[in-house]
Design a binder for these strands. Sequence first.
DNA 1: ATATTTGCTGCGGGTTCCCGCAATTTTGCT
DNA 2: AGCAAAATTGCGGGAACCCGCAGCAAATAT
Lengths: 242, 242
Amino acid sequence: MKVLLVEDDQFHARYLQDALAEALPEVTETLHAVNGQEGADEARAGRIGAIVMDLQMENHNGIEAARTIWAERPETRILFWSNYSDEAYLRGISRIVPEESAYGYVLKTASRDRLKLALRAVLIEGQIMVDREIHRFQRRATAPGNALDDSEYAVLLDLALGLQDKLIAERRGMSLRTVQNRLLSLYDKLGVGVEDGPGLPLNKRVRALNRAITTRTLNVEMLETAQREFDRWATRNCNKPG
Amino acid sequence: MKVLLVEDDQFHARYLQDALAEALPEVTETLHAVNGQEGADEARAGRIGAIVMDLQMENHNGIEAARTIWAERPETRILFWSNYSDEAYLRGISRIVPEESAYGYVLKTASRDRLKLALRAVLIEGQIMVDREIHRFQRRATAPGNALDDSEYAVLLDLALGLQDKLIAERRGMSLRTVQNRLLSLYDKLGVGVEDGPGLPLNKRVRALNRAITTRTLNVEMLETAQREFDRWATRNCNKPG
DNA sequence: ATATTTGCTGCGGGTTCCCGCAATTTTGCT
DNA sequence: AGCAAAATTGCGGGAACCCGCAGCAAATAT
């Protein structure tokens, strides 16, 4: 049996390798990759069925890599192993897990025994195993009242880039007033306008981005990704103002 | 000779401990701390003169800890050892390094040999040693035309929290128009309004926060710190709207 | 001492933003 | 099909924002 480790930190990779060797003697070959891009390539080339993946990586983060891999081979078992309980990443995960796959989520602060348990449960037994700490996040993120639906999320990204209402409306094919309604519910769900008592008026737009960042709904990489996507859209539609 | 290691990641702490033992046989005792708060306490209690410190930590990050330590004993030698070339942290460092101290900055991706070299150079020889990668950031951050002076930086923090012009003026003791002038130069230095060609108007306020985040001028912890400081200021001045 | 630069301030206009109101369309359910 | 709830859209006004213009004071240069 072959296992692929995708992890850019050398110390963590070493530790992972050791734990894997201890916990899963049936593993005959262990491959390494240092970013999501490499990871996806290795998985494709080596026909890997079991992967342990870090989330926070330079080139192509764990979510993007997992999406690529699962698109090609949905039955691939992936154990995510990450330092941070980053809600931003979690939002991504729960959307792309295929029905037929097994996956798991373990924090790097977990004990060696728990890691070994998760390795066996997910990669060998094909179970689902999520750290309880993470599960709390996931539930809060998907709880009614807090969950951002897709269109709200799209508007949040545009807002975060600094687009103004008219541009968002144009890009997303909505009317101006609808965009503003989305913003309204965004403000509500992000808790903007709650903390500012009388005499403390806040700029809701900036506040929304601030809240999205501090609650880990967005992070730097997602901003950069969104920027690239917007730039593509903008160049494609730049013949319009002519 | 005693050395204090401040590092919240167990693997990195282990590696650091090993490298330290190899490189500096004259070290007789090694202490550990897992966050900045503990680190500062240990340094005070143990009269430590040499410290290796991670920057990104939960409780009290490396910058805050270093500020505390240097305030009490400015001659303390500190080698910063961090995963990220975070401009946000660097801005903090260059401001608080005392004249009489030695310090250094090494990336965690550096080779073991380079780490050992830095350990000796900074902690034993009392030299200044900065990773070249980091130095580029530092220079760009302090280059004329990019450097944010203190008052601009203060206004940036307030903007990032979502305060509107009038509140910023009140808090910082400036006139409304002056605040707006600061914002103008902020927009300029952050490159807001450059990328948006005709037909692509952007919300400058949000865009400024976006740029500050993506260029690593600000990060999540600094936002949280600024929020706490603002909250204190707000409660202290909450008798004003009466 | 005079001239120039730099920073702070008020004023005013054009624009965007926030949001309540009401009309219309879509959605969901029986 | 029929009805109610929810979502979408237009309108309008008050507030905040961006910024050019101009006056003033302090610092610096000539």
